[in-house]
Design a protein around this nucleic acid. Structure first.
Lengths: 230, 230
DNA sequence: GCAAAAGTGTTTATGTTACACCCATGT
DNA sequence: ACATGGGTGTAACATAAACACTTTTGC
């Protein structure tokens, strides 16, 4: 094999990085870890790590997220592969990025082996970020917003039974703008896969009816030509 | 370094593969090459190849497309990275896929070094495809259709000056359904960045007015809140 | 009884769909 | 003259946006 032939099969270490969005109250938050090792030791970064064994990148992302933050059973969506040669000071490392969506304080988080700390940061108060992770976050948010409008992503964030108020708050906080309650509720109630349960949510003030998202009914609707749009 | 440590930096060869769409007359076509070498020697596949040197994957895609098919100056969009361990019989190879859009017979194509032949195939008459390339094509088409609706992609396919009839035909052939002429034209004429030139297209029958897409005006419109939607 | 979130309809404006004929040219 | 694609407007319909008050509970 000539040098050129070898070059053509140049092998590159790959990582999967996760932009975990946690909408909470008024602001969208992101889960970051503080790096324990160089490079960028002590700096904040996206959870993620190297591809291992026979895994797909999707599996890498899930595993690393679990190892570094304790999160499991999370919805992940691949959105871009970052390949600039100078994006990592250790040398050439290519990263495939995923975003996740969950309710922050209903999941336990715990710093894993490679992380000094883990915590939620508000989108508009982010610290200095390692590598090109700020850029990755920005692209992740753009993709999330676009996908949210045309696919029933939002139900991944919610508990199995949820109130329409909860749903609306999450939506508002991701899109970062207020939404008219009546119009929003109307739209949802016209979706045949949003089903009112007999349960109510007690606790704060007037109890709210709880709804559930019926995945199977959603599939049926889509097959019959339903186009999701919020 | 322990085996595990080495494992964590497992390096993988990367390829960039291109799904080149060429809408023409009634049908959407895809550019394929016939492979000159094993594996899948003599079978049809997407143009693409290995990442080299300091390139980004975007640069790899452009270069390989040029080397294998003769195409240059093409609009490319990254849409997914395929990472199943068994997707390539040579071993673990990960591929980042791009789609491109162009008018087929206004570009010269020519089989390069690694290709026996290059030719356009109709979407609904595809031959047996190497690797997971059929799957890649399907995902590429889904992404193309989605992007086409909300971004001014279609102007990448057209010559600098184009008639609304040309535009409509391409649109119909990608979406694979007829479109109402008057409604379609109305929408376009309301876009401030679709500008009528003084030129006309002679040749066939009644001459058609030619329009151009003003990229700068498009940016201005978007900044002022314009939301592209066709 | 008061604060706080749940719940509910109607009107207006806007955008989308459906639809058919004349025009300018080449052959 | 005729065949071909270019070019144009309106009415019906559907969807989206604006808007405010009553209800139920916990404190």
């Amino acid at each position: 094999l000539t040098t050129q032939e070898l070059n053509k099969r140049m092998a590159v270490p790959l990582t999967a990085d996760c932009v975990v969005f946690g909408p909470y109250e008024e602001s969208l938050q992101i889960l970051l870890i503080e790096r324990k090792k160089p490079p960028f030791k002590g700096k904040w970064a996206l959870p993620g790590g190297f591809l291992e064994g026979e895994e797909t990148l999707e599996e890498t992302a899930l595993r690393e997220l679990h190892e570094e933050t304790g999160l499991g059973e999370v919805f992940l969506k691949q959105f871009f592969t970052f390949s600039r040669a100078d994006r990592d000071p250790r040398g050439r490392i290519i990263s495939t990025a995923f975003y996740a969506l969950l309710t922050p304080y209903s999941h336990q988080i715990e710093a894993g082996e490679d992380a000094e700390k883990v915590r939620w940061w508000k989108m508009n108060e982010l610290p200095f970020l390692a590598f090109d992770h700020l850029h990755i976050i920005q692209m992740g948010l753009e993709n999330l917003k676009r996908d949210l409008k045309i696919s029933p992503l939002i139900f991944e964030v919610l508990p199995r039974h949820f109130s329409l108020g909860q749903l609306q708050k999450i939506y508002e906080c991701i899109l970062n703008r207020p939404v008219d309650k009546r119009n929003f509720w109307k739209k949802l109630q016209l979706m045949p896969f949003i089903i009112k349960t007999t349960e109510v949510q007690k606790g704060s003030r007037r109890p709210a009816s709880l709804y559930r998202f019926d995945r199977q009914m959603y599939q049926t609707s889509v097959n019959q030509g339903f186009i999701f749009d919020l």
